[in-house]
Design a binder for these strands. Structure first.
Length: 637
RNA sequence: GCCAGCGUAGCUCAGUGGUAGAGCAGCUGAUUCGUAAUCAGCAGGUCGUCAGUUCAAUCCUGACCGCUGGCUCCA
């Protein structure tokens, strides 16, 4: 048989005998790394695969993204083997690699304790030590089903039954066989740097009606050093956790006595929040929104009419006044629709943009609450835009620009998702299609990359979500734009068109920051507590060196406040070093030190929280410096 | 809501079947200081709540409340 020609990534060509395995071929190449698998004509395959014909081959580095993915996936198989060796009778389900690690879900009647994880880890090391090859087997579906049936692995049987192909692939390592697409590392000996992280309950197929399985999370890397660095990074990230910083910076707290998921703002947290809200009001007025304000409770009939009672009941709180039932608002839209309906509207009035910093209450399941990012009472920077269908595209575009501008100013990166009609929803197909198309077009004309989330829309319409990540890479929805043809109909909202006839407006629900609470949480983590100066609760602290400068320091403080700066003063009988240290730990942007020298020259010595010492500045110059910094941060918004 | 772990002083955390400790913070006094912790003394807790087991529970058991990590859900 004729030799085959292999093209390498750099374009060079090699000749090999047909049937040469990739592993053997890699050996000839003297690669500077130990490959975990290869790409054969763009398809990831095992190194044990033979080269049958002319092809392009590139080898996958263990420290590359696809390489780590394969290592983690193989590690999950090793973990499954370890678990089955230690706990006979445990059924395996699925065990994929995920961002930064992997997990495997087991059907086990007991639970895994931290001590169990240690045992499993030891067993995994033992299996790695056996250096068992990962052997790929392909067999007809029915044979695979019979095979797993014999083992009693009913979950595997269920999965195979749903695979459309005629044959499936299995991977065998020693006594352990798992259904798997592959590829895998050549042998368990390549699994060296891993750690089991945590356990969790997880519903089979993610459905809470199904049995809860026992999930074990772990992570794996190409080498021990990378693993150690990863674990250190997580520790480092925890230091900027907003729950921790919220306490350290005395911003807010949550009290058992008051209730779970309810935020109590301390002076500095309340101030930051207020500054954010002021910023929002300015931005909305600038962009043609009108401020409105609805009540916290509205009669039950209204919630029934809007569809909330049918679709949002389990998230709502109710109360009764003089025999009349009321619902505490979980959303702000109702009052906004009433305002629209309060008089006859002309097409010349549209679009109408109603903006409200609306505080809503939602009953969230206890297990989902999380610091500021998932709470039971929060304030949305909510707006409802009522417009003609032909204005929809422009309005959505403007909102997207609004979101982009605000996120850019804070320095956030975000991900975008388009969510379509869910099972539990109201309205006809035509309206849903129209609304979904409008959102899609606006995204595309703005050149935003997005993922589609089928069936994840609100019950009244499809939506675009903008997601930010917290310090531990968890993704949180902040801005959202929801298109709604349904509520205007339910509330019989109309406008008089050019033709003198009645027409139905379209409604957009949208938020920019989302919830002020959640956004603050993300902000705290993003800046590690060192807020931009314009947002800092204390922009400058005056620090006299000793009692002798107290009077002058007070004058400096008054002057700062007179210039609309948020300033504090540290008059404690403590050393300069201590005061500097504490101001630093509080992330105060400007420390204005006052000693006798400064009094003589009528100014302050300026130190930044970066540690940089700017030295003496006349007081007015320091004030101007702070103001300039703020203006610069706000980028003219 | 479900699975697991946790709940000890204001905070961070030790600890034990015979009712508890450290550091920081706090208070008092001394010190009056030049850019990340001055020194000394004092005080501080029905060990999340409620039941149960026990001669005896902060420790063991159960329920509840809350927190943490996930799952489902969601801004």
């Amino acid at each position: 048989m004729a030799d085959v020609t292999i093209t390498l990534p750099d374009g060079t060509k090699r000749i090999a005998a047909p049937g040469t395995t990739l592993q053997a071929f890699a050996g000839e190449l003297k690669l500077p790394f130990k490959p975990v698998a290869a790409e054969l004509d763009g398809l990831a395959v095992d190194l044990s695969a033979p080269i049958a014909a002319d092809c392009c081959v590139s080898f996958i580095r263990p420290d590359s993204e696809p390489g780590l993915d394969i290592i983690r996936h193989s590690t999950s198989h090793v973990m499954a083997q370890a678990v089955q060796e230690l706990y006979p009778g445990v059924k395996v389900t699925i065990g994929p690699s995920i961002e930064d690690g992997f997990y495997y879900d087991f059907d086990y009647d007991g639970t895994f304790s931290p001590e169990d994880l240690e045992k499993i880890e030891k067993k995994m090391e033992e299996i790695a030590g056996r250096n068992l090859p990962f052997v790929r087997r392909e067999l007809p579906k029915q044979e695979a089903i019979d095979f797993f049936n014999k083992l009693g692995e009913k979950y595997k049987v269920e999965i195979i039954s749903e695979i459309p192909a005629d044959t499936v692939s299995l991977y065998v390592q020693g006594e352990f066989t798992d259904l798997c697409r592959g590829p895998h590392v050549p042998a368990t000996g390549m699994i060296k740097s891993f750690k089991l992280i945590s356990t969790a309950g997880a519903y089979w197929r993610g459905d809470e009606r199904n049995k809860m399985l026992q999930r074990i999370y772990g992570t794996a890397f190409a080498d021990k050093k990378a693993l150690k660095e990863h674990l250190a990074r997580i520790e480092e990230a925890k230091k900027r956790d907003h729950r921790r910083l919220g306490k350290e910076l005395d911003l807010f707290s949550i009290y058992d006595e008051a209730g779970a998921g309810l935020i109590v703002y301390h002076p500095k947290g309340a101030l930051v929040r207020r500054i954010l809200e002021d910023f929002e009001v300015r931005q909305h007025l600038k962009r043609g929104y009108d401020m409105v304000k609805g009540p916290q409770i509205l009669k039950l009939d209204l919630w029934e009419r809007s569809g909330h009672l049918q679709n949002y009941l389990e998230n709502m709180y109710f109360t009764e006044v003089e025999g009349k039932k009321y619902g505490l608002k979980p959303m702000n839209c109702l009052a906004h629709m009433l305002i629209y309906r309060s008089r006859l509207r002309s097409y010349k009035d549209l679009p109408l943009r109603y903006f409200e910093l609306g505080t809503v209450n939602r009953h969230e399941k206890s297990g989902v609450l999380h610091g500021l990012t998932r709470v039971r009472e929060f304030t949305q920077d909510d707006a409802h835009i009522l417009c003609m269908p032909e204005q929809l595209h422009g309005e959505i575009s403007d909102i997207i620009t609004f979101v982009k501008d605000v996120m850019a100013m804070f320095g956030f990166e975000f991900e975008v998702e388009l969510s379509t009609r869910p099972a539990k929803s109201i309205g006809d197909d035509q309206s849903w299609d129209l609304a979904t198309a409008a959102l899609r077009e606006a995204l595309e004309s703005n050149g935003l990359a997005y993922d589609v989330n089928e069936g994840d829309g609100a019950f009244y319409g499809p939506k675009i979500d903008f997601k930010l990540r917290d310090c531990l890479k968890r993704s949180w929805q902040c801005a959202t734009i929801q298109c709604d043809f349904i509520l205007p109909e339910r509330f019989d909202l109309t406008y008089i068109g050019e033709d003198g006839g009645k027409h139905r407006p379209v409604m957009l629900h949208r938020v920019i920051l989302g919830s002020i609470e959640r956004f603050m949480g993300i902000l705290i983590e993003h800046f590690a507590g060192a807020f931009p100066v314009w947002l800092s609760p204390v922009q400058a602290v005056v620090i006299p060196i000793s009692d002798a400068q107290h009077e002058f320091a007070q004058q400096v403080l008054e002057s700062l406040r007179g210039n609309d700066l948020r300033a504090g003063i540290d008059l404690r009988n403590e050393s300069l070093n201590l005061k500097i240290r504490e101001a630093q730990l509080q992330k105060t942007p400007f420390m204005l030190v006052v000693g006798n020298k400064e009094i003589e020259q009528g100014g302050v010595a300026v130190r930044l929280r970066s540690g940089e010492n700017l030295g003496f500045m006349p007081l007015q110059a320091a004030v101007q410096k702070i103001k300039d910094t703020c203006a610069n941060e706000l980028q003219g918004m």
